[in-house]
């Protein structure tokens, strides 16, 4: 019995120590030692695909929903694509040797919030600078125009 109580006090003492540690370590942080992040403005485009508060709160759900739609159902061209994020928000990144990546934009908030993301172990965070590839969905107007040109040639559409 005495042994048990002894153990109890040891646990309590350890608990108090840890608690004190938290208070001491936490105090300056609350005082604002870590500045609230201000991610850079998008490199291109005038406004985001949804209002900023909505994006801040919900971007992960929007991305996740669309990723399943795209991959599993084959739905293309919807606005909330990771590729879309990269296209606009990629900025020159020292870590990538100056290439435009989305890493600085994502990291600013994600390291503040200590949320680890798993997007870029598979997806490239680099902006696609390859202009030779036909990127139809990036530019639907171009494709539409191309289609119409072709059809006019064939006199299918007057």
């Amino acid at each position: 019995m005495t042994q048990g109580r002894h153990h109890f006090w040891k646990t309590m003492a350890a608990g108090l120590l840890i608690l004190a540690g938290f208070v001491l370590a936490g105090a300056p942080a609350v005082a604002g030692d870590v500045p609230v992040p201000h991610p850079a403005k998008a490199a291109k485009g005038e406004k985001c695909v949804a209002p900023i508060p909505e994006m801040r709160r919900n971007h992960m759900n929007l991305l996740k929903h669309q990723r399943d739609d795209t991959l599993r159902k084959g739905i293309r061209g919807n606005p909330f694509s990771l590729k879309g994020c990269v296209d606009c928000h990629a900025v020159p990144d020292k870590a990538a040797g100056g290439a435009r990546t989305v890493r600085p934009f994502c990291q600013t908030c994600h390291s503040y919030a200590a949320v680890k993301i798993d997007c870029f172990s598979c997806h490239t965070g680099k902006a696609d600078e390859d202009k030779t590839a036909l990127k139809a969905m990036d530019n639907p107007h171009k494709v539409t125009a191309r289609l119409q040109d072709y059809l006019k040639q064939r006199s299918v559409v007057k």
């Binding site: 061209g77 919807n78 107007h141 539409t144 289609l147 119409q148 059809l151 299918v156 559409v157 007057k158």
Partner: peptide, 19 residues
Amino acid sequence: NIRDNDIDKARRQFMTGAV
């Protein structure tokens, strides 16, 4: 979605005439 509508319109025009 503007993109969708545009492409849909194009598609519709296209399909009506297309054999």
